[in-house]
Amino acid sequence: MKVALSSKGQTIESQLEERFGRSPNFIIYDLGNDSYQAIDNTQILNSAQGAGIQAAENIVNTGVDALISGNVGPKAFRALQAAGIDIYLTRGTTVKKALDDFKKGKLSKAKSNNVDGHWF
């Protein structure tokens, strides 16, 4: 199983980024062999609208099964849901700690977007 985490930096020691669409990086963690890679999301940082949708496309293409982030807006939520990616929300932690919590089953699955999007 592969998990994507929104991250301020490129390592698992980085702080978990609270924003999904405008997260500078994603850490793609493979639970099967405990390895990870960082993907750059900064291209999307510069887009005005639809950042969440583009970020969703970005991580769907990496083949992950779940996402851990701080906030997910309505458009990104719809996109992730359509792609069958489960969403887990947590905040104020590091990527590593969020992963540990996820493995221990401490994070619960989000049923709807927790923030409204760019337009509301």
Binding site: Q49, G50, I53, A56, E57, V60, K75, R78, A79, A82, A83, G84, G117, W119
Partner: peptide, 11 residues
């Protein structure tokens, strides 16, 4: 996404 088309009317 994965063969499913999604539209976002607000955009």
């Amino acid at each position: 996404l994965k063969g499913k088309v999604l539209t976002f009317p607000e955009l």
